[in-house]
Design a protein around this nucleic acid. Structure first.
Lengths: 326, 326
DNA sequence: ACAAAAAGTGGTATCGATTTCAATTGTAGT
DNA sequence: ACTACAATTGAAATCGATACCACTTTTTGT
C-alpha cells in the first residue's frame, strides 16, 4: 500500500507538501492538483495510526453504555454517531452490562486509545467512585447521573417526569400506586425520589420495589406483586426494559389494563402505542440527548476551562389508554 | 502521561524489555515484577496508535450496517462486539442508511484505519459493484447477499424462510397472498423469490410490492393496498421494520388480523408476541449470525488462502395468532 | 524599482511503541 | 572446569505520518 513518500515521489514534491495537501495547509493550486492526481493514481490512503501518533489527536470518542440493545441507548448512540461523523470523529462503542468491572476496563481502554473524549452512562456504583479529572480526557455523562454531578452531563429531569406520571394517575383517580425501579442506575433512584415525593405530597403511601435491569427480573417481580392480596391499582415502571417485563407479567397473569391495573412507564418505544389502547409513557428526547452530549463534548474540547455544566431536558408525557379511567 | 521510556527508566531496564512485558515476550520473573510495579506506579497506559503503527496490526474490525436502530442489526452488532472484545479486538460501527455513497465512504475509512477485517451488510447496489479482493482486508458479508457471492458470508436461507411462511399460509387456507419487500437489499429480493416460487408451485398469483426500507413507506403502501378492491387476504412482509409499518397501517385502517387480513413477517422482535394473539414470524438467529460472522473473519485471518465459504443459517417459524384461521 | 511581508516548499526531527540483531548471562552436560 | 546452548537483555532502526524551522519565491505597498 502506497505511503506518503511514494505519493511525494510520484508528484515530484516533498512528503511535507503531500501532508499539507492532506491537511488543507498552504499549497499552490498547481501543486495541489498534481499531488491529488498522484494520490488517485496510487490509490493512496493515509495511515490513521501514524497520523494519530504524530499529531497527538485521535479524533475518536468513546461511547460507554450498558447495552446497545436497550432501545434508549440504541437511539442515543445513533444520534451520537451521526454527530460525531459529521464532525470528522469516530466512535468506539462499549457495552458494560451494568458491570463496574467492565466499566473500569473500558475506561482503561479509552485511555490507551487516547480518545478525545467519552460519553458515558455509568452505573450508580461508578458514579460514586469515578474521578473524571484523573482520566485525562473530558467526560460527558448521560442518563444515570444526579444533578449535583461533578462533570458535564445531559440528563432527563427524572424527578419531575416521575412526578408527572404520578400526577396523571392521581388525576385519574388512582390512589393505590406502586413503583418498580431498576436497582443499578442513578436514574432509577431519581425516578423513585420523584415518585415518592409526589405521593407523599398527596398524603399517600409509595410502595416501591427494585429489581435488576432486565425484562425477566421485572416480569418476575410484577407477577409476584400482582398475585399478592395488597396488589396496587396502578403501576409506574421506571424504564422501557422493565416496562416490557411488566407488560408480559400482566398478560401472562391474564389481567388487563386499565381495568385490573393501570400501567404507566418511561420510554416511548415503537410498540407502546400498539398494545390495546396504548401505554401511557414519558417520552425521552433521545435524539436531543445524543446530539447535546456530543455538542457539549465538542464545546468542552474547545474550551477546557469553561465551568462544568449540566443540561436538564424535559420528558414529554404521552397519555394513552393504559391509565385512563374514562 | 508516562511512556515506555519512563517505565523503563523507573524499572531500571531498557524499553525493549518493557515492551516484552507488555507483549508477553520472554522476560525473567524478577524483571517482569519490577516492570509491572513501575507501570502501576506511573499509571502507564500503552499508546495504541504507536503500537499499531509499529506492529502493523490494528486489532480493529469494522461493522458496516444500514441502521443500528433496526433491531436485527442491534442484536447482530451486540453479538459481534462481544465476540470481538473477547478476542482482544475493537469494533468501529458505521451506519450507512442504505446509501451507497456512505457505504463507499466508510469502506474508504476502513482502509485508512487499516482494519483487520470488516463485517458488512451491503445494499444490492454495492453487492454488484464491490470488489472485495481490492479492499486490502477480508470481508464477511451478512444478510443481503445471495448464495453465489464471491466472499465469505453468513446468510439466512431467505428463499426457504419465505417459502415456509407461504406454506403455512396455504395450509391455513389462504389463497390470496400479497408480499411486501424492501427495495434496496438483496435480502428483499431473495425473500421475494422464495415467495413467488412457493405461490407459483401452488398455481397461485404472487402479487408483490416493493418499498423503501422504512416504517413510513411500508405503512403508506399497506394502507393503500388494503384500500383497493382487490385487497389480499394475507400479507407477507419481508422484515421487522416493514412489519411494524404494516401493523400500523392495519390498525389505522380499523382492520383486524387474522379476520380481515392475515399477517406474517420476518424478525421476532420483542413486541411481536404482545399484539393480540401475536404475529407469526420467521425468527432469525441473530446472535448466531453475529458470532458466526466474527468467527469466520478470525478464521480467514488465520488462513488467508482457505477457500471462500458461505454459511447458510435456517430461520425458525414461530406460529402465532395473526395467521390462524382456527 | 526596491524593501518588506506573505506564501509556498523542502529537510529533518519526532510521535511512542515494536522489531531485529547482537551481546550478555545462566545452565547443563561431560 | 570448560564448552555448547538456551534464556535474557539492550541498542538502534523502524512504522508513516506531521511539526518545526529555514529557505526561496511571489506579492504588496510606496
Amino acid at each position: 500500500m502506497a505511503k506518503i513518500k511514494d505519493v511525494a515521489a510520484a508528484a515530484g514534491v516533498s512528503p511535507s507538501t503531500v501532508s499539507r495537501v492532506l491537511c488543507n495547509g498552504p499549497v499552490s493550486d498547481k501543486v495541489r492538483k498534481r499531488v491529488e492526481a498522484a494520490m488517485a493514481r496510487l490509490d493512496y490512503r493515509p495511515n490513521l495510526a501514524a497520523r494519530r501518533l504524530r499529531s497527538q489527536h485521535t479524533d475518536t470518542i468513546g461511547l460507554i453504555v450498558s447495552d446497545i440493545r436497550n432501545p434508549f441507548f440504541t437511539a442515543v448512540s445513533r444520534a451520537v454517531e451521526d454527530e460525531a461523523y459529521r464532525n470528522g470523529m469516530r466512535v468506539i462503542l462499549c457495552n458494560t452490562d451494568e458491570n463496574p468491572d467492565k466499566e473500569a476496563m473500558y475506561l482503561r481502554l479509552m485511555q490507551e486509545e487516547r480518545v478525545t473524549g467519552v460519553i458515558f452512562a455509568p452505573t450508580r456504583q461508578m458514579v460514586a467512585s469515578i474521578d473524571p479529572q484523573a482520566l485525562g480526557f473530558p467526560v460527558v455523562m448521560i442518563d444515570r447521573v444526579s444533578a449535583d454531578a461533578a462533570t458535564d452531563a445531559v440528563v432527563l429531569d427524572n424527578r419531575r417526569a416521575a412526578a408527572q406520571l404520578v400526577g396523571h394517575l392521581l388525576q385519574q383517580g388512582y390512589r393505590d400506586i406502586g413503583g418498580l425501579f431498576g436497582n443499578t442506575s442513578n436514574t432509577g433512584m431519581e425516578r423513585h425520589a420523584g415518585f415518592s415525593e409526589a405521593l407523599q405530597q398527596a398524603g399517600l403511601a409509595a410502595p416501591a420495589r427494585f429489581v435488576a435491569p432486565s425484562v425477566e427480573a421485572a416480569e418476575q417481580a410484577v407477577l409476584q406483586w400482582l398475585a399478592e392480596p395488597a396488589r396496587p391499582q396502578a403501576l409506574l415502571v421506571s424504564n422501557g426494559v422493565l416496562l416490557l417485563g411488566a407488560v408480559r407479567a400482566i398478560k401472562s397473569a391474564g389481567l388487563h389494563w386499565p381495568q385490573d391495573v393501570a400501567l404507566v412507564g418511561f420510554d416511548n418505544e415503537v410498540w407502546t402505542d400498539l398494545l390495546g389502547d396504548g401505554l401511557t409513557v414519558v417520552e425521552q428526547p433521545v435524539n436531543e440527548i445524543g446530539r447535546t452530549a456530543m455538542a457539549m463534548l465538542l464545546e468542552r474540547l474547545d474550551e477546557p476551562e469553561r465551568s462544568q455544566r449540566i443540561v436538564v431536558l424535559q420528558g414529554k408525557l404521552v397519555v394513552r389508554g393504559s391509565s385512563l379511567t374514562q
